[in-house]
Design a binder for these strands. Structure first.
Length: 576
RNA sequence: CGGGACGUAGCGCAGUCUGGCAGCGCACCUGCCUUGGGAGCAGGGGGUCGGAGGUUCAAAUCCUCUCGUCCCGACCA
């Protein structure tokens, strides 16, 4: 492609809306433009990058035995009512009516549609397994779209669905997808982790997120330094090192109430008593489908709501607003404690080891000091309820956990028979028995993958594309358009790239060199070739890798080194 | 949904407090000049100041409503 002919509007200045690096660079590099909140147009350069991700996804999905389809984006409400998600999905589901006042939605996901399709086609176990996928625009009416393509409302997603005869077969479909996903993100040149994720209400431990490591990521993951344990922070556990339960000696004074005016937070209470937050008990109220409960953890720890939910066996869990705690439970927010409470008490497994502790007195303006687990309060519900911290012990081996931030680019899920049962997607097995198909679903955010790649590969000058994702593999900078010898050499070289099938951006614009260098850096083209009058006179062409600081020079009369360098880059790219 | 900020040329912003000619930089067009890291000079085009209503002799500026965007939080398969 000739730069002079390409619609590639690069920006020197960044639109004020852009906060994170990938969003800024994608705007500056002329990849995307915003139309409305969370809704973007893809410009040629941006679309090329998306297509590169899609190409890899297609190759690996097909290799894993999946077949591509394209399902409707607009879906009738009836299907969603049948799966009982029309009422459950909430405001994220974009709904509208057609001219006949019939209800429709714009698909945020396609379990219903694919299951409907399959139930009309599949009758026999002989037709299974089946794995279908599509790459398509989705819409989720996010409460707060942000960060450009990272959390848009309209976005391009690869979503795939597998259908199997039983749980064992479904598990192997799942494992196959897991392997395919690893190949996909490896080929995209990303540093990622496949982490165990919360599997929600559906149960089982068959959900993995693929998380690209990046400090700006919205997700936190814990991983072991020694073994391959890795989990979303929502799900991560650490090995419990049991310590002594410190009971008070016989002579130790009973708990004592202390006036603590204006001490509603752990930090304020710690400052008042001149002690560490770890010696204070954090008491929180949660509400679930099973009613209210109180959760107590050491004051320096964060409650993990997913663990609380699991410990309760609840279907949903939320933190009630303070007004409800005050009105309905008559508990003083800011001064709550477990002595005593009328609602169920959940105690973190670390609490019995705290010794003499400080907690709220259930009376405004007062805390209790010298409180002991076992003497002053107790509970049968002791569980792991806190978020893991870096440096804690791995639950699987003797390694230590580290915490990283990352961007969720893929999520695979074993669905079981949730949808097949609701939508009656059944088949006859070998014994003539009717059975529900066992399903799995597998998503990849295409645009988010591009954004994540940029988030992980950039410097102060712009994007540094992994070779596989780079829209152009080579930028050819002609610095002396008016010099006939230089230009004719560049033209010849440009044609050579084209005939070799290498995607090249030939900067033939009538611009000063500085402009061309800046744009080449911004666009993140892996290899940059520069030819000007001076180099031509010396018989050399400058060759620079975007990733490296130093440029090299190759002789004009023998470009073999150039072709082998490109072959190297390409080979490195197709590693799996 | 709660809190905060913003909306003036394609982009980045000043002007708003204290009402009185619509501004600056970049980008764009023309010409000259320049050509190894976003040059220089000269000339030029481009605005319902987000929208509606109100106050006033006079509104980008003050008041009311409204729409949109961003940030923090809550929420969320």
């Amino acid at each position: 492609m000739r730069f002079s002919r390409m619609h590639l509007p690069t920006l020197k200045e960044v639109p004020a809306e852009a906060e994170v690096i990938s969003h800024r660079l994608m705007l500056r590099a002329g990849m995307i433009r915003r139309l409305a909140a969370g809704i973007y147009s893809y410009l040629p350069f941006g679309l090329m990058a998306l297509r590169n991700v899609e190409k890899i996804v297609r190759q690996e999905m097909n290799r894993a035995g999946a077949q591509e389809v394209l399902l409707p984006a607009v879906q009738p409400a009836e299907l969603w009512q049948e799966s009982e998600r029309w009422d459950f999905y909430g405001k994220e589901l974009l709904r509208f009516k057609d001219r006949h006042q019939r209800n429709f939605c714009f698909g945020p996901t396609h379990e219903e549609v694919i299951t409907d399709l399959i139930r009309h086609e599949i009758r026999s176990y002989r037709q299974l397994p089946l794995n279908l996928y599509q790459i398509q625009t989705k819409f989720r009416d996010e409460i707060r779209p942000r960060f450009g393509l990272m959390r848009g409302r309209e976005f391009i997603m690869k979503d795939g669905y597998s259908f199997d005869v039983d749980d064992t077969a479904a598990t192997s479909s799942y494992q196959e997808m897991r392997a395919a996903y690893s190949r996909i993100f490896t080929r995209c040149g990303l540093d990622f982790r496949a982490v165990e994720a919360d599997s929600g209400a559906i149960g089982g431990n068959f959900s993995h997120e693929f998380v690209v490591l990046a400090d700006s990521g919205e997700d936190a993951i814990a991983s072991c330094s020694k073994c391959d344990y890795a989990a979303n922070i929502e799900k991560a556990q650490s090995r419990f090192i049991a310590g002594d339960v410190s009971l008070p000696d016989a002579g130790v004074a009973p708990a004592e109430a202390v006036a603590t005016p204006d001490c509603e937070s752990i930090a304020e209470v710690a400052a008042f008593f001149q002690t560490a937050p770890a010696n204070i008990l954090k008491s929180m109220i949660f509400e679930s489908d099973l009613g209210f409960c109180m959760v107590v953890v050491p004051g320096d720890r964060e409650v993990n709501e997913f663990k609380v939910k699991a410990a309760l066996g609840a279907n949903w869990l939320e933190v009630p607003p303070p007004a409800r705690i005050i009105d309905e439970l008559e508990l003083p927010v800011g001064y709550m404690g477990p002595l005593p409470v009328k609602i169920p008490l959940l105690v973190d497994r670390l609490v019995p080891q705290m010794g003499a502790l400080i907690c709220g007195a259930n009376r405004y303006g007062y805390h209790l000091r010298g409180v002991y687990w076992g003497r002053d309060f107790t509970s049968e519900q002791i569980a792991d309820l806190v978020q893991v911290r870096a440096g804690e012990a791995c639950p699987r081996c003797d390694g230590l956990l580290q915490i990283d931030r990352g961007i969720e680019v893929g999520h695979i899920f074993k669905l079981g028979t949730k949808y097949s049962e609701k939508l009656n997607a059944v088949f006859l097995d070998q014994d003539g028995q009717e059975k529900a198909m066992v399903m799995g679903c597998y998503g990849i955010g295409i645009g988010r993958t591009v954004a994540a790649a940029i988030e992980q590969n950039y410097d102060e000058n712009g994007i540094i594309f992994p070779y596989a994702l780079a829209p152009f593999k080579v930028a050819l900078l002609n610095l002396d358009l008016k010099n006939e010898a230089v230009t004719s050499f560049c033209e010849k070289l440009y044609q050579e790239f084209l005939s070799r099938g290498i995607n090249v951006l030939y900067d033939d614009r009538n611009e000063r060199p500085g402009v061309k260098f800046k744009d080449a850096d911004l666009l993140g083209t892996p290899l940059r070739l520069t030819l000007g009058r001076k180099g031509f006179k010396r018989g050399v062409i400058e060759v620079k890798l975007r990733r490296e600081a130093e440029a090299r020079e190759f002789p004009l009369e023998n470009l073999e080194p150039l072709w082998s360098l490109l072959a190297e880059l390409q080979a490195d790219d197709s590693r799996i």
